[in-house]
Amino acid sequence: MTESERRKMAAGGWYCCLDPELDELRDRARKAVHQHNTLPPDERGSLAPGLRALFADVAPDAFVEAPFHCSYGMNITLGARVYLNAGCTILDSAPVVIGADTMLGPGVQIYCAEHHKDPALRREGLELARPVAIGENVWIGGGGIILAGVTVGDGAIVGAGAVVTRDVAPGATVVGNPARVLR
């Protein structure tokens, strides 16, 4: 029996993102995202029911503004009192864990997938996914981008527009592209 692309993705190996099973999972996420983004705020609440059911785990008091986008949803965990402002995108090909009391500004993007550097293999849909972990009491300013495999430590601040390519130490403030520690 050959290993499924979904299992390869979950194991952090090279997988083909053009796989029918992964297409089906992304379609399920698109439907939940659409529900979240189109429900009136008083009906949606802090998180539309379909999106809440899709996520791996979400605290009852986590809040996701609309519009929001994710690729799978099933790999997203939101801690207590997490706040995602409007326009956040989480491409969760791998686990994305966001700790309690963390706030993401508008337009923050989290990317877990890395496409193959070889153009021929990239055309075939080969990519790998690395998890992203964001600690507790973190603030990510508007337009910040967190790349695959990054851990942002507790109490850290990511400045608006920063592109985070490496781990951020607890309590550090990073700014710029690529993000660097502000002294």
Score class of each variant (00 low, 15 high):
180 R>F: 10
38 T>Y: 05
17 C>T: 13
67 P>Y: 09
27 D>Q: 12
51 L>Y: 01
50 G>Y: 08
58 V>S: 05
8 K>S: 01
173 T>L: 09
37 N>E: 14
120 A>I: 08
166 R>M: 11
151 T>I: 15
87 G>P: 00
35 Q>G: 12
80 A>P: 14
95 P>T: 01
43 E>V: 15
98 I>T: 00
41 P>A: 09
65 E>W: 09
113 A>N: 05
112 C>H: 05
114 E>S: 03
166 R>Q: 11
1 M>P: 15
46 S>M: 09
22 L>Q: 10
180 R>M: 12
116 H>R: 00
11 A>R: 11
67 P>Q: 05
159 G>D: 12
30 R>M: 00
33 V>E: 00
43 E>R: 15
162 A>H: 09
141 G>I: 14
77 T>G: 03
114 E>W: 01
119 P>M: 10
24 E>K: 15
173 T>V: 13
154 D>E: 14
136 E>C: 15
141 G>T: 14
178 P>K: 14
36 H>F: 04
145 I>G: 02
93 S>H: 13
111 Y>L: 14
59 A>N: 00
142 G>W: 06
15 Y>Q: 11
163 V>F: 08
149 G>N: 05
23 D>Q: 09
158 V>W: 03
123 R>H: 01
35 Q>M: 12
130 R>I: 04
181 V>Q: 03
52 R>Q: 09
120 A>D: 06
182 L>M: 12
60 P>V: 09
50 G>W: 05
140 I>F: 12
31 K>I: 13
57 D>C: 07
175 V>Q: 06
172 A>C: 00
97 V>K: 07
30 R>I: 06
42 D>H: 07
136 E>S: 15
90 I>Y: 05
30 R>W: 08
67 P>W: 02
160 A>I: 12
137 N>R: 00
129 A>S: 03
166 R>A: 10
39 L>G: 06
27 D>G: 13
175 V>R: 00
85 N>I: 08
42 D>C: 04
124 E>R: 13
31 K>A: 13
105 G>S: 10
82 V>C: 02
166 R>Y: 05
110 I>Y: 06
15 Y>E: 06
72 Y>S: 02
167 D>G: 01
65 E>F: 11
59 A>M: 02
178 P>E: 14
74 M>E: 10
104 L>S: 03
12 G>N: 07
76 I>W: 11
11 A>L: 09
31 K>Q: 14
64 V>Q: 00
180 R>T: 11
48 A>R: 08
143 G>C: 07
109 Q>S: 12
12 G>T: 05
55 F>H: 03
160 A>H: 11
67 P>V: 03
56 A>V: 04
23 D>Y: 10
106 P>H: 15
86 A>K: 10
10 A>T: 02
112 C>R: 05
102 T>D: 00
181 V>P: 06
161 G>N: 13
130 R>T: 06
12 G>H: 04
13 G>P: 12
40 P>Y: 01
161 G>I: 14
33 V>A: 03
156 A>H: 12
149 G>A: 07
176 G>R: 02
104 L>M: 07
151 T>K: 15
177 N>A: 15
3 E>V: 11
115 H>L: 11
61 D>N: 08
69 H>Y: 15
103 M>I: 11
133 A>E: 14
148 A>R: 00
5 E>Y: 10
4 S>R: 06
92 D>T: 01
170 P>G: 09
26 R>L: 07
175 V>P: 00
